[in-house]
């Protein structure tokens, strides 16, 4: 009973933290999307120099742990004499990190759409830019939804890492509650975990609906697999 009360009492603070968590998620994903899709096109259609620069960028952001990136941006800004809030540094670090993963998703989609679509649109007199906007982009956005859903879940969960920079997102709110009430920390953290789970679950469901809604009729080939469960 006491435990239930504790959870109930901690909910307002946790939900306040959840709003920050959601803000962070949107900011990270948004920046990651804009940069990611741009460099994906750069990777496919750019010249050799552009391709090399982008692939080094991707390698670096994918190889360095998120926590280290957070510190590098936060302390790095101060190092070169710029004052950045923890929130902005976090957005830069995690947003650019996500861009390195999102660019791979979009690149895969661009390549699977294939040269033929580009040739067809060029053949009716569209510029390369127009072809990208009207023909390639609408297709790759649809194709990318499943992998993008995955990236959404990763980014959402990784917002918890900004705890290390002192941003009061959900996990830190939980920590504060425990410090304030000397409450059962196991219970508080499990409550936080359940909220994360609901967010991830709801988000994935939402994107699943989006995927269904924007499916190109007849485009996806049905997979016929017997699977080893059959026997």
């Amino acid at each position: 009973m006491d435990n239930l009360m504790l959870i109930w009492d901690s909910l307002p603070a946790l939900l306040k933290g959840m709003l920050v968590t959601l803000q962070l998620t949107f900011a990270f994903l948004g920046l990651g999307f804009l940069v990611g899709i741009s460099i994906a096109f750069g990777q496919v259609y750019g010249n050799k120099l552009i391709k090399t620069v982008i692939s080094v960028y991707e390698k670096i952001f994918r190889a360095i742990p998120a926590l280290v990136l957070l510190f590098l941006f936060y302390f790095g800004a101060a190092f070169i004499g710029i004052k950045l809030s923890a929130f902005i540094s976090a957005c830069l670090a995690m947003g650019l990190r996500s861009s390195a993963y999102q660019s791979q998703i979009f690149r895969g989609a661009i390549q699977s759409v294939g040269k033929e679509q580009m040739m067809a649109s060029r053949s009716i007199g569209m510029s390369q830019f127009k072809s990208i906007i009207y023909v390639i982009l609408p297709q790759i956005l649809r194709l990318s939804i499943p992998s993008w859903t995955n990236e959404f879940a990763i980014v959402l969960k990784d917002t918890s890492l900004v705890y290390a920079l002192g941003i009061t997102e959900m996990l830190r709110q939980g920590r504060y509650i425990i410090a304030r009430t000397y409450g059962n920390s196991l219970l508080i953290y499990i409550t936080a975990a359940v909220i994360y789970f609901i967010l991830v679950f709801a988000g994935s469901k939402f994107f699943g609906l989006l995927e269904k809604k924007f499916k190109i009729p007849g485009y996806e080939t049905k997979e016929e697999k017997e699977g080893v469960r059959a026997v």
Binding site: A153, K157, D158, T159, S160, L161, Y163, L171, I178, N184, S185, L186, L187, Y189, I190, A192, A193, Y196, F197, V200, F201
Partner: peptide
Amino acid sequence: GTPLLVQLFIFYFGLPS
């Protein structure tokens, strides 16, 4: 569906309670 950091906190800070 849950962050690794939260799982880590559950083990380190949570279990002692």
